[in-house]
């Protein structure tokens, strides 16, 4: 059956942020079985920050992502398993290991203006016989023309598709249309869109991207994901069904996976509360949220203040270490005694 677009479900990758990277192999296997049976063609599994993301900076995975990926490959019958890799975090050996485990799609992500650091990994993915997808993160920070120039680099390295990734959920529908439309017009390869829901526009922007010619879209069950969450897979599928757009995915089965397998995991993110909205409003990387809340608690400062200052500083995805930097600075500003009292000044509560 021909479909209106190809859906990649990222519940087990972007959704991992909302669970502080604590997926178990049993949870991965059951969610993959559910999505596979529902007809989802591609399922992404990795640490939320991609291969090698397990770290002090982004949070350690409680189960090694290699075991999670192998469990996913074993559980899938028709769905293909994808992984995410950010050059500078994951390395080539991680990708080789994933190819050996049966992963068929490699999504290589860079900040939207730094596409040229993806060359080694996109070329390697192709040499390993994988489908290679370029993933231009924080794409709201680049104007459409600039984004196209970056996307062309990824295409020139061999990418089969390049995504406009709204990592901060900061794009209006017009923003998403302009970027996706410009890439569709200027590239020979496919174009995808990855939406976040901070402005409550994830499904609307995904549908707009489709109208502009996007061939691939992302979702996460129950909208699980960094910040205010992703485009909810089951809502996207159900809406497409009403619009007469073929997805190849059974809406009721997708709803069942979201309701019965994902909601019981009690995610810590995925709502448009003050912090969730501020991320989209200030254009800050969604996965900063939980780290900012923890630093706010530890150092007695406000989560929203941290997020807004990160936005002012122009930090990019991956710079979670700057959350601590900002929290310490805010704590010093608020402290009644002068800063510089030795190491105790920065110590959190025991």
């Amino acid at each position: 059956m021909s479909t209106a677009f190809r859906l990649t479900d990222s519940t087990l990758r972007d959704g991992s942020h909302a669970l502080s990277h604590r997926y178990t192999t049993d949870q991965v296997a059951s969610i993959v079985r559910g999505l596979d049976a529902a007809g989802v063609p591609v399922i992404e599994v990795s640490h939320g920050d991609g291969l090698g993301g397990s770290s002090f900076n982004y949070g350690f995975s409680s189960t090694d992502e290699r075991e999670l990926v192998s469990a996913a490959v074993a559980a899938a019958t028709t769905a293909r398993i994808a992984v995410l890799l950010l050059p500078g975090i994951g390395v080539a050996d991680d990708l080789r290991d994933m190819a050996d485990r049966g992963v068929q799609v490699a999504r290589i992500a860079t900040h939207c203006t730094e596409a040229d650091i993806s060359e080694q990994h996109i070329r390697l993915a192709k040499r390993l016989g994988m489908e290679a997808v370029g993933f231009l993160m924080m794409a709201h920070m680049a104007e459409p023309g600039e984004l196209l120039a970056q996307a062309r680099l990824m295409e020139s390295y061999g990418a089969d598709c390049v995504y406009v990734v709204d990592s901060a959920g900061a794009m209006t529908t017009a923003d998403a249309r302009a970027r996706v439309g410009t890439l569709v017009e200027g590239l020979g390869c496919q174009v995808g869109h990855h939406a976040h829901n901070n402005l409550s526009l994830a499904v609307a922007n995904s549908l707009a991207a489709l109208e502009e010619g996007a061939a691939q879209l992302d979702g996460c069950c129950a909208g699980l994901g960094a910040g205010a969450g992703n485009c909810p897979t089951e809502v996207l599928v159900a809406t497409c069904d009403k619009l007469g757009l073929a997805t190849g995915v059974d809406p009721l089965e997708a709803i069942a996976v979201a309701e019965d397998l994902v909601r019981p995991l009690r995610p810590a993110m995925g709502v448009i509360d003050r912090a969730g909205l501020l991320l989209g409003y200030a254009g800050v990387y969604g996965s900063f949220l939980l780290h900012a809340q923890r630093a706010a608690d530890r150092y007695g400062v406000d989560t929203g203040e941290i997020l807004l200052e990160l936005g002012r500083r122009g930090v990019v995805g991956g710079q979670e270490d700057m959350i601590l930097d900002v929290a310490l600075e805010l704590a010093r500003q608020a402290a009644p005694t002068p800063a510089g009292q030795g190491s105790a000044a920065g110590r959190g509560p025991r």
Binding site: N57, G88, I89, E114, R313, Q319, M322
Partner: peptide, 17 residues
């Protein structure tokens, strides 16, 4: 090691954590 490139303008100073 984690390596990040930041395109902010004006350019940021090198940061290491």
């Amino acid at each position: 090691a984690i390596i990040i490139l930041n395109p902010a303008d004006p350019p940021i100073l090198m940061r290491n954590t």
